[in-house]
């Protein structure tokens, strides 16, 4: 483990809490059946910390992420983002907080197919009616090694390049927290590591919090903390 990561880890321990879950659980109703996808969970993610969540398929990782991200309402418990509760807000309000305070990196990138790389980032400014931050955009694309591809469409990029664009998109508006659901699922293990490391670097450098869901054990070394999900229960590992 590198000295840099060590330093980051120490910083993370006394970073401010960004994402706080207390007693959060989620049940799905399917006909008469109730599926306990997530048992009561407490979790705090601090600034500068990249938390990895590992677990087999169907264990509830995506459920955890959607609840954290305000995409689903938990059946019980509270989710706080930057100290302010998001549970119970109407979807319109949650969407606004997701857009301003969160960044998402989704499986298979989750880019908009008809936007060029720069426009993927510009979309945020268009929605928020803010001026584009050219310097930040150029800096991010440079740091992620995709500056040469700025005028390409996602279909013209490789899987790894797409994921890097997705990371740039998630980070562009300097969100409090970045949530990534299997961001490397579509990549071979070499590329997967590079992408995960970029995510870690950006998190540490900018002092932001990040949660990465994966079932690829080889990515865990880049995480500051790893949690294991099994059958809806989250535990340190």
């Amino acid at each position: 483990m590198s000295a840099g990561a060590d330093r980051a880890r120490r910083a993370a321990q006394d970073g401010a809490p960004v994402l706080e879950l207390s007693g959060v659980s989620k049940q799905y109703r399917q006909g008469d059946e109730t599926i306990d996808a997530l048992h009561a969970t407490d979790l705090t993610v601090r600034a500068g910390e990249l938390v990895g969540v590992l677990g087999p398929s169907g264990s509830g990782k995506s459920t955890l992420l959607t609840v954290m991200g305000g995409l689903r309402t938990p059946s019980a418990g509270r989710v706080l983002l930057a100290g302010r509760e998001i549970t119970g807000l109407p979807e319109k309000e949650r969407a606004r907080r997701r857009h301003r305070e969160m960044g998402f990196v989704l499986q298979d990138a989750g880019l908009v197919p008809y936007l060029r790389v720069t426009d993927q980032l510009a979309l945020h400014d268009k929605v928020e009616r803010t001026a584009a931050d050219e310097a930040r955009r150029a800096g991010l694309l440079e740091a992620l090694g995709i500056a040469d591809h700025r005028d390409k469409y996602p279909e013209e990029l490789s899987g790894g390049e797409r994921q890097r664009v997705a990371i740039a998109t998630a980070l562009y508006h300097d969100p409090q927290v970045v949530l990534a659901d299997e961001p490397t699922a579509a990549l071979d293990s070499g590329r997967a590591k590079v992408v995960a490391r970029l995510l870690a670097e950006q998190t540490h450098e900018r002092g932001r919090a990040a949660v990465m869901v994966t079932h690829d054990e080889r990515l865990l070394p880049v995480c500051d903390r790893v949690l294991r999900m099994s059958d809806g229960a989250l535990s340190p590992c």
Binding site: G110, L111, V127
Partner: peptide
């Protein structure tokens, strides 16, 4: 699916 992605990222429905 693209609309879903954008909604997840928080792009408002009315946009």
């Amino acid at each position: 699916p693209v609309f879903g992605i954008m909604k997840a990222r928080g792009v408002p429905t009315n946009y």
